[in-house]
Every structure is written in structure tokens, then in C-alpha cells.
Computed example of a mutant assay.
Amino acid sequence: MPMPQYSRSQVLAVWAAASMPMALMAWVVVPLIATTEGDSVSWAKWLIGGLTLGLVWQGLLVAILVWVERGNLRWRTLKDALWLHAPTHPHTGRKGGMLWLVCLPLIAGLWLSGALPEPSHSPWRNFGTFLQSDAGRTFFAGNWAWFGVVAVMLMFNTVLGEELLFRGLLLPRMNRAFGRADWLINGALFAVYHLHTPWVIPAAVLDAFWLAGPAKYYRSAWIGIAVHSTASVVLLGMLLSLVWVPRGLSP
């Protein structure tokens, strides 16, 4: 079936349904709960748990909207509805194969933008800073349960949540409302979506070029998923080195 198109108000409604729960969790719910304990471990646990719930909700939101639109969630339906096809060259029609190599420079661009200086913010809200702290290393040493929670969070962050919603659901449905600028608007919405971590918004604006633009050009959400997931793989590797405590060694 032809790809249905959203109006501008529908695009903004989906954006709000994804971003507002994350922002409320980070800036309202977690501070109310975590301050009762008042330490970095408490903040980390509640933030990880709260944001994981927000990301899982995004995956459910995508499933609900596709169900309403298509009437089922069969894999064939999901592939067409969410651009879950191998990248396709727009001029030659060639699919997959060497086209996947386009991910390499995009990954480099994503990591370069991620290395840009960030506005100052509380270290208690920065997961990477927490992992490098004594409290973080002690907390995660041998802690496979919380490793699993973080793994779920990262899976929904770059595969089943953010990317599936922004590049799989929204981007293919934004052309009627925004024309040729649809991918730029998609990237801008994705940047501003990070109200729960606003210090990343300036660098995230560039993600339109590493994630939204290539996904639009090759008609494949897998491009954004593959590129964005590299950060999750590296983070999981860092976390695994903390969790995997050799027997006989103390944390």
C-alpha cells in the first residue's frame, strides 16, 4: 500500500508522545524519588529505570500506530511500514551489498559530532561520567541484573525505540507536510526530542546528516539503526568490562 502521510500536527503529536514522557521522567519523577536517598547511585538507578520505561513506551507507540494503520504486525507489514528494507540506491535500484559501506563515514561523522563540547550539566545525569566514577564501578561490578536493564535501555534506544520511531515511522510519513526538507525537520525534531538530556541537543542537530538524510536517501531505517547502534555497542562493551569481575577479585 502507498505510504500514508501525516499532517504537521500529527507529526508533532507523535513527537510529543515520544519526548514528553522522557522529559517528565528525567526532570520531575526521578528528582522526586531519587532525592530521598541523595546519592549518585540512587540517581543512576532511577534515571536508568525511568528512561528505559520511556524508551520501551516508544517501541509500543510505534507498534500501536502501525497496528492502527495496517491492521497487523506481521514482519512483512512491519518491513514496508517502517522502511525495514536493505538500503536501496535511488537511481539504480541496487539493494544492500556494498551500499552498506555508506555506514562507515556516517559512523565517523556521528562520533565526531558526539565529541563536540557540551554545555555544563550535573555529572549525576551523565551515564558515562557515572561509569567512570568509583561509585559507578563499584555498583556495576558483578551486577548482571542492572547490566540487563542497561542492555534493554540501549536496545530500545537505538533499535526498537528512537530510531524505529523517528526514521522508521515518522520520516517516511513527513514528505507531504514538509516536502524536500522532511529529513532536516526529522533531524531537528530528533535533536529537540532530547529534552531529557538537553546538553546533547546542539550536537544532535547534526544527526540529521548522519541518520535522517541517509535513511531518506536510501529508503532504509536500517541505516540509522546501524549507525546509531555503534554508540550502544561501545557503551555495552565498557559496561561489560565493569560487570565481568573475575572470580576471586573484589570489585
Rank of each mutant, 00 (worst) to 15 (best):
M1Q: 13
L60A: 12
T138F: 08
G161D: 12
F147D: 05
M153V: 03
L206D: 15
K216Q: 10
A108S: 09
A212L: 12
S113D: 01
N157W: 11
A86Y: 15
G38T: 00
P2T: 11
M25W: 15
A151L: 06
V243D: 13
A204D: 04
Y6V: 05
S229M: 14
Y217Q: 07
S9V: 08
A226L: 05
L112N: 04
L32T: 00
L24S: 14
W222H: 09
L116G: 00
L32G: 03
G213A: 15
A23N: 03
S42V: 11
L24D: 11
L55V: 08
Q5G: 04
H85A: 11
K95T: 07
G50Q: 12
D207S: 15
D39V: 07
L189Q: 06
L184N: 11
V56T: 10
F190T: 01
W100G: 04
W244L: 09
P123W: 04
D134K: 14
M174A: 08
V11H: 00
L73W: 10
L242D: 04
G213C: 12
S120A: 13
G97H: 09
I223V: 14
N143I: 00
L239R: 01
P105V: 01
F178G: 02
V192Y: 11
L51H: 01
S19C: 06
L32H: 14
L240S: 10
V149E: 11
L112P: 05
M155N: 04
L12T: 06
R76D: 10
W57N: 03
L65C: 01
W46H: 12
L206M: 14
A16P: 06
A215P: 01
L60W: 13
C103G: 02
R219S: 08
A226C: 12
R173C: 08
P119E: 03
W67L: 10
S9N: 08
L24H: 09
G97R: 13
